[in-house]
Design a protein around this nucleic acid. Structure first.
Lengths: 248, 248
DNA sequence: CCCGAGAATTGATTTGAATCAAGGAATGGG
DNA sequence: CCCATTCCTTGATTCAAATCAATTCTCGGG
């Protein structure tokens, strides 16, 4: 089924990817700026797979033998405490890679991962990829830049958890989703509200209430659609502590 | 002053390090298993520097031009919110490296760093180090393993913040410091209690009270010394939810 | 088109931790 | 050796968010 589809690219694309998929890979921090040949080389034995919502990709402490690039859909990374409840560490979507970091060192996944929307993923086995990395410094630098990015995200997350209120975390989340940084926008929430709540370290009830608190700042919510009257104003309010932070 | 000190090693040690310092470097995940020559090679223009407590090493968003290895002392990484208060992201000590990840990608420090105890640091300029990394896959893999480790730490931190109580986080902190994993131990707190509180995402007052809550589990505290009657029991209580977690 | 299950909201209540406010050790300099 | 500054502890109070408890809303299937 992979032949005769897309004329020129289909034959030379890494593992039989559509043009659009190839586009995604090209933009990936991990591979950005590499030649088509290089990408082909790195991803030689990678494969595209389709997963249904709910599929468990790997479990915390599993040996890490592969990592993933999301071509479509959403994936949740989480941890389970001994007591059974879960902490959402990250949620990724199209154009993002995850678990690359795990294939180094002791090479066990530090989190579990499930598919939260039907997804198409590029699955990259570690073995060949690692070999190529160690042979080519250029690849390795890209990889480190990508890991560095994930590190930053987590740093931000720790910061937010320790010093922002629920409403502020939600505001920050909306701002990150906003396509523009001022004026009025309508944002479509990318997945279930309760999952967003988890991602932001709060209960669903608190999520709902936080959304209400933002109403005073021009935020309205109908179903999965959130309209923000003035993005800049929302950001300003967050920074100024118009929503309560711990005082100075 | 570097000659005639330690007989054999002094001459061939990286940049005139004592045997003990060389020992530290050898154990560093970043360099572990590399030959003396390789280390010498990588750290060619690194230098040992002494810093007084309170010294600001770099500020969040500074261009990241160097990273550090701690030969002695303690260093705090933190972020400042717009509103002025700080979030402690990590505290590192002898034998640990930090800010390696920052020298990749956009190459700005994602955090600020200050010295919290008089310290001796190995300062490693990024330029030469990066060049060597890209030339030698072995170096790069080590580096990634090290970054992977930091990533794991942050993941754990996010998890703890979202689903453990203050008392549990403190218990986990003590357990990590414990030299043995059962029986009775006395632990010396490595730095000020208020800094530990910050590191654990709580106020100093809450730290004090959490310590009291642990008294019921055989934890006593005199000054900077904490005695644990039974390490295994403490761990058990934490896991079992003897200290309150969110219920299942 | 209606129905049932899961998702989301809303309300009432509890509670863990922050804040406010003093006291009490400890530490270092004069 | 004493004082002062800083750190730590303890108490009273407040507050944000979790928990408990109903509804209401939504959406896909019969």
């Amino acid at each position: 089924m992979s032949n005769a589809m897309s004329h020129a690219e289909s034959a030379q694309g890494p593992i039989g990817l559509s043009n659009q998929d190839a586009e995604i890979l090209a933009r990936l921090p991990l591979l950005a700026g590499l030649s088509a040949d290089s990408v082909q080389d790195l991803l030689r034995d990678a494969a595209v797979q389709t997963y249904d919502r709910g599929t468990l990709l790997f479990v915390q402490d599993d040996p890490a033998t592969r990592f993933f690039v999301i071509l479509d859909g959403w994936v949740k990374l989480f941890r389970n405490s001994e007591s059974g409840d879960e902490s959402v560490i990250a949620v990724f979507t199209r154009g993002e890679s995850f678990a690359e970091a795990a294939i180094f060192g002791d090479s066990r996944y530090p989190v579990s991962a499930t598919v939260v929307e039907d997804s198409r993923l590029l699955v990259v086995p570690a073995m060949h990829f690692l070999r190529r990395l160690s042979e080519n410094g250029d690849y390795a630098l890209k990889m480190m830049a990508s890991m560095s990015r994930h590190l930053r995200q987590l740093v931000t997350q720790v910061e937010q958890l320790t010093l922002n209120s629920s409403a502020e975390r939600l505001a920050a989340f909306l701002l990150k989703l906003s396509p523009r940084d001022d004026g009025a926008v309508v944002i479509r929430l990318p997945f279930d509200k309760s999952l967003i709540a988890g991602r932001l370290g709060m209960q669903p009830e608190t999520f709902s209430r936080s959304l209400n608190k933002l109403r005073g700042l021009g935020v309205e919510c109908k179903g999965p659609l959130v309209s923000v009257a003035d993005v800049a104003a929302l950001r300003g309010a967050g920074a100024a502590g118009g929503l309560k932070t711990r005082r100075l």
